[in-house]
Design a protein around this nucleic acid. Sequence first.
DNA 1: ATAAAAATTCAACAGAAGTTGAAAAAATGC
DNA 2: GCATTTTTTCAACTTCTGTTGAATTTTTAT
Lengths: 215, 215
Amino acid sequence: MGESLSKKDRILEVAERQFAKRGFDGVSLREITNEAGVDVALVKYHFGSKQGLFDELLHRRAEAINRERSEALDAVLARQDPAPVEEIVDAFTHTLLNKVVSEDPSWRSYFGLLAQVNNNPEWGGKTMSKNFDPLVRRFIEALSRALPEAKEADLYWCYHFWSGALTLTFADTRRIDGLSGGLCSSADFEAVHKRLVPFISAGFRALCQPGESHD
Amino acid sequence: MGESLSKKDRILEVAERQFAKRGFDGVSLREITNEAGVDVALVKYHFGSKQGLFDELLHRRAEAINRERSEALDAVLARQDPAPVEEIVDAFTHTLLNKVVSEDPSWRSYFGLLAQVNNNPEWGGKTMSKNFDPLVRRFIEALSRALPEAKEADLYWCYHFWSGALTLTFADTRRIDGLSGGLCSSADFEAVHKRLVPFISAGFRALCQPGESHD
DNA sequence: ATAAAAATTCAACAGAAGTTGAAAAAATGC
DNA sequence: GCATTTTTTCAACTTCTGTTGAATTTTTAT
């Protein structure tokens, strides 16, 4: 059989892609189940509800991400602690971008999903926090050692900007393609990786290193 | 009289707030018209369709924003051209943040709306481009003069990161409130303003000033 | 082989969705 | 005051929404 995925997995795969593209309310269960070639009722059986399906999507890859990122941070800190800002920022970022560049395309859908969630004013904050804040705190602590003069609030705001930049990247709106007249491509995640780390690191230093006065 | 707005304007006001909070597909016309105290059919009469209402919302404030930002840039460049990166970045940013801080709360809804649009993978890129790209190009040209060694692609990517950071701010997800243990507040746009400009400016310099080394 | 459990299908409901044509009301111009 | 246009209401119609109970098939374990 060419299609060896279970019906449950087919639902997950299609739902991930469609939710990422059109948002939670922008896709109906029937659109998902039709594309997956299964009955609508299976959603209730396997996931309880539409919201249950969405939550499962979000959760199932979050642990893997958190583990990989945590290990990447461990590796950096094992070599040197405090570590350079660039290396900490890179540990947080390259895990995601590598997955998008090299591995199966479903990861790209997942990060698109995260982009939707991260910018959702209703429940996005809570959902992101539940899945990722413990890990983020580890990174911020590492950054706080790398930038010993930093005020804590500044570190959180820097992370906020960082998160926004990364998120818009994963949203993959193709706006930059037209804006740049074809010079840049929204899907060129290698180009992003090369630039995001120094960009964000410089931002952290500017706000969190002594001598820079911002208030 | 407390309520002197026309029915058309009441629809616009409620729709702006609700779309910003829950997205285009997350709100029904009846929720909007009920809250506004008008008949559903008025949407078709005044705006043609739900999409027409949304487009009108987006468009009606875009021109004012573009004009103000353009004048802010003019003022900076009149004083000095090439202008310092910080001043150019600030001209782009403070127009929005000032409106959110001081003026009527509907602006905050509008920027929340922009956050929704900017991260929409389906039609967000096209919509943002149509409304804002000509102005963005002016800013990028000014930045290109401020950073004469910059490669063009780097400038566009820097703008992309910048846009993402600003956008997540306007999404106002309150994630940072919990993450920071109450140290930061998602709604504290003054705190953002104080930090965003140096953060983004440092990013631009890091990527676009080749000689500058930061280690 | 058979009984129990898991997975899947079927048909439907009850409500909500965007849209719409026609009638009524209000505002406008003369 | 009357005719015309603009605005608003009313009622409905399809289509689609998430959800669900019961029946059926498939798998698993014995």
